[in-house]
Computed example of a mutant assay.
Amino acid sequence: MHIRRVVTTRAGGRSKPPYESFNLGGGVGDDPVAVAANRARLADELGLGRDRLVWMEQVHGRNAEVVDGPRAAAVEATDAIVTAEPNLALVALCADCVPVLLADPEAGVVGAAHAGRVGARVGVIPAALTAMEKAGASIDRVEVLLGPAACGECYEVPAAMQADVEAHLPGSASKTRKGTPGLDIRAGLWQQLADAGVAKIGIDPRCTIEDKTLFSHRREGTTGRLAALTWLDPADAS
């Protein structure tokens, strides 16, 4: 199976300010008609049926669920989903949190997770790896992409919060450009994944706060959500 991975930007959609324009988040106050049009375009552009995108009701938790087919509604109260079903795209929505795309190409298992400060702290990625194994993956074969997110030089937090997250997610503490306490959640997740035995970890270095082609809640407050998707493409199987 060939592994497909896509990360969207904010360009090319129907949403009006402050969600302009390719907002894919359904729970941020945008016009539902515009969101539906954007989601339909996403599926069409990817060559997938519009029912082949699986969304999550993201709650900044650590629940991970294995799905085996399309869902009529978002998977409830879940921040990580896993599947071995071909042409079923798993979607993580973010606007500063880290979208995490996982895959075991040999087993034909993929996963998508939404890992913000809270979810990363409570262990959403270890839960996602456990779900990957449940679906037939082997951790030593898993490949991971950590998508665009708030970088450690921009993500300023109180010192007590930094210390708390660092205690649960070692490697995440950073210093901002202003010299104040910060968090680099991607760095902490990289360390967590490496400690778990994941050998292939890629990072999309874009910072959502700095890159205005991406949505950022910390930069804008009310805004849209980008999507990070992954799926198994049997058409490209060799």
Rank of each mutant, 00 (worst) to 15 (best):
G202D: 09
E133M: 08
A120E: 05
A167D: 04
C154T: 15
E210P: 08
K178W: 09
V124L: 03
P158T: 04
S138T: 11
G152S: 00
A159N: 05
Q191K: 08
A112W: 11
R177A: 10
K134H: 09
A194F: 08
Q192C: 12
V157I: 10
A227K: 11
T213G: 13
T223N: 05
S174Y: 01
A113H: 07
R117S: 12
L193C: 06
G202N: 03
D184L: 10
G182A: 09
A149F: 02
G202Q: 12
L145W: 13
K212C: 03
G147N: 07
A137G: 06
R219E: 14
H114T: 14
S138C: 10
P126Q: 15
I125R: 03
G179K: 05
D195G: 01
R186Y: 00
A120N: 07
G221Y: 09
H114K: 12
F215V: 12
I201Y: 03
P158D: 09
I203H: 05
A227P: 03
G188Q: 06
G221N: 12
T180N: 10
G202Y: 07
T130M: 10
A199F: 12
V122G: 06
G111W: 14
R218V: 14
A115Y: 01
E156Y: 00
T176G: 08
A187Q: 10
S172K: 04
G221E: 11
T130A: 13
D211T: 08
P205F: 05
D195M: 11
V198L: 01
V122E: 08
A173Y: 02
A159M: 06
T223F: 07
L145N: 11
A128H: 09
I203P: 03
R121C: 08
A167Y: 05
S174N: 09
V144K: 08
C154G: 03
D211I: 05
G111Q: 09
